[in-house]
Amino acid sequence: MKTLLKSNKLFLACLLSLLNSCSSLTLDTEKITDVLTWGEDKVNSLPKSAVAFECEKSKDFHMFFLENDNAVWVVLKNREFRLNKDSEQTNVYTNGDTVLELKPNNTVLTIQKKPLYDLCKEKKSTEG
């Protein structure tokens, strides 16, 4: 599905380029670029309450709390998803297959019991 979406956007970009080159039609390239981007800059769209984590192997991810800390929204480079607070464990959020365990010096995100992000520490903000 994602490949189909990318190919549709590529086709649209080519079509607009051809229309622009052989007519007196002027196009606002900034607006077209905004439409054709695939959201690589997700960090800028995160809420201010988002927490950044730096992990081993130069990996990182973001998360923020939902519903009075009863759920979290996890933002990885290629996907986003919700995890609900585990009713039996403190600082553990899960959806069954995926588990986020928040610890001060070793936050771990596992998928199907395999660590995907390990040895993660909260990245301290540099804003004053």
Results as ranks from 00 to 15, higher is better:
Asn84Gln: 11
Val51His: 03
Ser125Arg: 12
Leu5Asn: 05
Leu12Asn: 06
Gly128Ala: 15
Ser17Trp: 07
Lys124Ile: 15
Leu36Ala: 06
Lys114Trp: 04
Leu83Lys: 03
Ala71His: 01
Leu76Val: 08
Gly39Glu: 08
Tyr93Gln: 00
Glu88Cys: 07
Ser125Gly: 02
Phe65Glu: 07
Arg82Glu: 10
Leu10Gln: 10
Asp28His: 07
Ser87Cys: 07
Leu5Arg: 05
Phe64Ile: 05
Leu4Ala: 09
Phe65Cys: 04
Lys59Val: 12
Gln89Leu: 15
Leu119Val: 08
Lys123Pro: 02
Gly96Arg: 01
Ala50Pro: 02
Lys6Pro: 02
Glu101Phe: 02
Lys123Trp: 04
Asn20Thr: 06
Asp69Lys: 09
Arg82Gly: 06
Leu27Lys: 06
Ser45Phe: 15
Leu10Thr: 12
Val92Pro: 01
Leu27Cys: 01
Asp69Met: 14
Leu83Asn: 02
Leu102Val: 15
Val92Gly: 03
Leu18Asp: 11
Asn68Glu: 13
Ile111Ala: 08
Ser87Gly: 07
Thr126Cys: 09
Leu27Thr: 04
Lys2Tyr: 11
Val51Ala: 00
Glu67Met: 10
Leu109Tyr: 06
Lys42His: 06
Lys124Met: 09
Ser7Val: 14
Val51Lys: 02
Leu66Tyr: 04
Ser21Lys: 12
Gly39Gln: 03
Lys6Ser: 08
Leu10His: 03
Met1Trp: 06
Leu83His: 01
Leu27Gln: 09
Leu100Pro: 00
Asp34Ala: 15
Glu80Asn: 13
Val72Ala: 00
Leu100Thr: 01
Arg79Val: 05
Val43Ala: 12
Lys124Gly: 02
Glu56Phe: 05
Thr110His: 01
Leu66Gln: 13
Ser21Tyr: 05
Ser49His: 04
Cys22Ser: 15
Ser24Gln: 12
Asp34Val: 14
Leu119His: 14
Ser125Leu: 14
Lys121Leu: 06
Lys31Gly: 02
Ser17Cys: 08
Gly96Ala: 05
Asp41Gln: 09
Thr29Arg: 09
Asn106Phe: 01
Asp97Tyr: 10
Met63Glu: 03
Lys42Gln: 09
Thr126Val: 14
Ser125Val: 13
Asn106Glu: 09
Asn78Tyr: 12
Glu30Pro: 00
Arg79Thr: 11
Thr26Asn: 07
Val75Tyr: 03
